[in-house]
Amino acid sequence: MGVTVVFQWELVDGQTHQQAIQELHGRINNTGAVQEGKFYYESKFYQASDSATTRDFYTLKTSEYPVTVFARVDDSTKDKNSCIQCDSPMESLLVKLREFFTPKRTFEIRGTRFKLADFWIRPGIVTSSGSNKCVTIEIEYTPSYFADDCWPLFSELGSYILNRQIDDKPPTLMENNKQFNPGMMVQQYVEIFSRKATTQANFQQPMKQEQIQAYNTQM
């Protein structure tokens, strides 16, 4: 595992999620990445029965770490390290807490995994209750644990794949030479799951045509 950043793809007018993922596959193929199997994520949202004294939380399971369950309190405070890693019997333990925390929603992400040198790229569609919610692209750079060190690489690859300029600084939770841990990946997914469909704003404008051409010539 290395630094992992999750981006959300902004759908252009009239574009379906399937079309978006096909476009993404095309762009990823153009970078020279090769397809290496599938990936799967499943997240459950547990709602506290008494919101005055207890908090909601998410669990996340993934095909990348098949015997591990991640759990994180539904909290927007990014500095807090409240994501725990557990062995898979955690599911059985949560059954015992059903009176206090009930599973309300399930989110799934399925897709094809690509490998480009030291990068893993995982584009997938987020589904919940059978309907498509959004498209995510996870980029992992395996040799580094510090986002500040490798952000220019992320910036270059991410900008091309996403067809938009991405931030020139790593996400806030990885800034200031914080060592990457799997909880940071979980937090990024939880933020996407908890984001309402109407707040797909805060995205920067897509690259202008001349920027794309300049970028393609560099590649």
Partner: peptide, 9 residues
């Protein structure tokens, strides 16, 4: 890429 993506999903 289109074919590959559809088949993959």
């Amino acid at each position: 890429s289109g074919k590959m993506g559809a088949a993959g999903l």
